[in-house]
Design a protein around this nucleic acid. Structure first.
Length: 485
RNA sequence: GGUCUCGUAGUAUAGCGGUUAGUACAUCGGGUUUUCAUCCCGACAAUGCGGGUUCGACUCCCGCCGAGAUCACCA
């Protein structure tokens, strides 16, 4: 019988999920789903000082938004609960007692100040601080309320395999009597995650490379507890856009929620993040969640850090907006646009907004662009004569020529029987002939008159959506404005 | 300082003993009757350095250099 694959994402509720950390959720999710296994969400809230109200909800929301469902964890429950470490005190105590009775863990009743003094001494002498060199001769193997419990280490060279980094090893220098249980009775990460992963049957531990240097200590605990080692998957860091540091809040990279608010599609975020430091060997760039689940492979995870590149994220976003429109139609894309329209669109009908979306979608990088790009579809733009005067093509026409050209165009368009893109284009072409202007000149003039925006979709499409009345009214308004000057 | 890890264009990556070192983003140029965008075409641009091994090295080995991680009653 094949062992079931179980992975987990175990964040601390200390704020929003950091962009760089989302990968530590996506990768284990893909590993589990690919094998038909389980993905667990566990909240590591043993540090009461850093706990942030609402952080858990934010984490859950982010995972859900990205399309990840956890099989066990908060909200959904499961057979290995509770899924908040703060509620698992008794479990950790039980495991700590195993070590205590085996003579592998002891109570640390050295005053903190004394340890601190020793630590400073070591720093001054530039030797590594190791508690084991400082521990009392006679150890007390018992559980004492209000005192930390330390692991009794057995330093030696240890070797292990990392699914990403390969065969690794480290000497005894880094192994120490690390704290298992803090004086508040809650476990440290170092102990808690080992206990939880064992209890929950986790087969693959996926986490950042920063834990690599603690591995020898973890290995010692697995050994002392008689636990089998799970597979270790170390993920390289996501680097900040500049410098060589790992991505952090001050690097200008927004949180996942921040990008979501800008109107980045979740598919794009997932796609980008997953392909940052992973590649299936083909030249494919765009992947759906289903494709990622079937194609993902741990062996293909890069082993050097990857720099976060917002520009590429935005490219993915644009690609996905087009992909959804092209493959699933306006309605599918429209569903995503709620909250991204400009204020003026408030009273507009759904149908009208869909029409606007249909002609503007291929210009969007994020849905939030709707706000700045579609205003003139919902209210008459303010006339800015300088936009006309400064345009490099319209500039070539005299004021009189502008007025006459617009008048002619309005006249021709006014005669159109059925107001549709094709007929409008025919009308525009006729206006071109009759005015004798170059396309660049006349079309620029008309385009600006209609929108007074830096850019807009094709003229005929814009007018079709705007409607005959509005289009002609706007052109006439400009004619009046020019003539009065 | 100890320990550990990493090193292909600006960025993300492919290639894993013989390639014109491929692709994508970015940048620059061109095309699609106006703009912006899409789309298409083109250009620029990389194996950190030094030694080996080999007929041949981006690929294997060693050294150096550079970068990062970690050394908490944080995770």
């Amino acid at each position: 019988m094949k062992e079931e694959i179980v992975t987990r994402f175990a964040p601390s509720p200390t704020g929003y999920i950091h962009l760089g950390n989302v990968r530590s959720a996506i990768y284990p999710y893909l590993i589990a789903k690919q094998a038909g296994g389980k993905f667990i969400l566990r909240i590591e809230d043993t540090d009461q000082a850093r706990f942030v109200e609402g952080a858990t909800e934010l984490i859950e929301e982010t995972l859900s938004w990205l399309g990840m469902k956890w099989d066990e964890g908060p909200e959904v429950g499961g057979e290995h609960g509770p899924y908040f470490q703060s509620e698992r005190r008794e479990i950790y105590k039980k495991w700590a007692m195993k070590l205590i009775s085996a003579g592998r863990a002891y109570v640390d009743d050295t005053p903190e100040e004394e340890i601190q003094k020793y630590r400073e001494e070591c720093n001054a002498r530039k030797v590594p601080f190791l508690y084991r060199n400082f521990r009392p001769e006679k150890l007390k193997f018992e559980w004492v309320e209000g005192k930390p419990i330390r692991f009794l280490s057995d330093p030696k060279r240890r070797e292990w395999k990392d699914e990403v980094m390969g065969e690794l090893s480290a000497g005894p220098e880094v192994q120490d009597d690390i704290i298992l249980i803090k004086k508040d009775g809650l476990p440290t990460y170092n102990f808690a995650h080992i206990v939880d992963d064992a209890e929950m049957g986790v087969t693959h531990i996926v986490r950042g490379v920063e834990y690599l240097s603690s591995m020898p200590n973890y290995l010692a605990i697995y050994e002392a507890l008689g636990l089998p080692r799970p597979k270790f998957v170390s993920l390289p860091h996501v680097l900040a856009p500049t410098g060589n540091k790992k991505l952090s809040k001050r690097d200008g990279a927004k949180s996942v929620t921040g990008y979501r608010a800008d109107g980045i599609l979740s598919e794009a975020m997932l796609n980008y993040l997953c392909c940052l430091g992973w590649n299936d060997g083909t030249e494919q760039e765009i992947y759906t969640m289903d494709e990622l689940v079937s194609r993902f492979s741990v062996e293909k995870i890069q082993n050097s850090g990857a720099r976060f590149d917002e520009t590429k994220l935005l490219w993915y976003s644009g690609q996905w907006i087009r992909k959804i429109f092209d493959e699933r139609g306006v309605d599918a894309l429209y569903l995503r646009t709620e909250g991204f329209w400009p204020e003026e669109a408030e009273g507009a009908s759904e149908e009208y907004k869909k029409q606007v979306l249909s002609i503007i979608y291929d210009r969007l990088r994020v849905l939030g662009d709707l706000k700045t790009m579609t205003g003139y579809f919902f209210r008459d733009p303010e006339i800015k004569i300088e936009m006309i005067e400064n345009n490099k093509f319209v500039k070539k026409m005299s004021e009189l020529e502008r007025a006459l050209s617009l008048r002619k165009t309005a006249e021709i368009l006014g005669e159109i029987e059925e107001w549709n893109a094709e007929n409008i284009q025919a009308g525009l072409n006729r206006a071109l002939e009759e005015t004798g202007r170059k396309p660049a000149e006349l079309f620029s003039l008309v385009r600006i008159s209609l929108s007074f925006a830096e850019f807009s979709p094709a003229l005929n499409l814009t007018m079709e959506v705007l409607g005959r009345e509005t289009s002609l009214a706007r052109i006439r308004k400009v004619i009046t404005a020019i003539s009065n000057e």
